[in-house]
Amino acid sequence: MGTAEPLSQAGYAEAVKAPGRKRKNKGETNLAGYLFISPWLLGFFLLTLWPIAQSFYLSFTDYSLLEAPVWTGTSNYANIFSNDATFTKSLSVTFVFVLISVPLKLFFSLMVAIALSRNIRGMNLYRTAIYFPSLIGGSIAVAALWRNMFGLDGYVNQVLAWFGIQGVGWITNPDTSLGTLILLNTWQFGSTMVIFLAGLKQIPQELYESASVDGAGRFRKFVRITLPMLSPVMFFNLVLGVIGSFQTFTSAFIITKGGPINSTYVYALFLYDKAFKHYQMGYASALAWILLGIVAALTVLNFLASRYWVFYESDGGKAK
């Protein structure tokens, strides 16, 4: 086991095809499987399915919320694709946001998780302190704080001034506002970090011990043990990071309101405005389903790529 074979076997698809090794009585495993997933299945049919189906239907209507929906066929979709400059703008803002913030947050939170996974006295206090920014989430205090830091006379510019650099109004400059939001998003890396932390703790210590016996150094252990053993969790954080970032809303909503000049007008905020501010729920529903299509496509790509780098202890690594 000392030399785990990472990166080779077992993608998701394979796992789906052949999870159980012994073919047992089919009906029985079917029953057990459905029993276990029944809470979700029940909830899906009772609470989730109808609203989702409804929103799909509404995407083909003109619906102000205040009046009954009127069927308009595919005209919402046609309008979105043919003459809505804001759609293009908000989609590109969102892509930039996802492309930068997802990898940045993954990297940063993994590094911090590793630093915090050691058993040092007082570690629980450090962890709590470092998790703190993620606790305050979308609170009003965050908006005030962020203005304090990145305003024209904020702390960041005061520090820059020591080095003779004239700062800008980071939040209110259209060139830097999105970057500031990405930074805020990265600063709230706590959840991703905690998931990494739990993943790190799940790696059996014996693997490291036997690797030490084999004379492996720190870096080698990281590459040969930590990364492959952590890959399912990393995969999770990546997939969910992409899904979540495409729907990023709160920070833009409370800090920039999408401005200045739409520079932080992320897709979910655009959609929210359409639905609840401009009373165009039908149009907003169409926007939502387009987003679903984009995110689903990217997630499928993620799953396809995962078979080349995600390593599942339960599927591979061991001889049959």
């Binding site: 800008v168 109004g169 939040i171 209110t172 400059n173």
Partner: peptide
């Protein structure tokens, strides 16, 4: 200036 104006609340 615009940058300052946009920061007002």
């Amino acid at each position: 200036p615009a940058e300052k104006g946009a920061a007002f609340l």
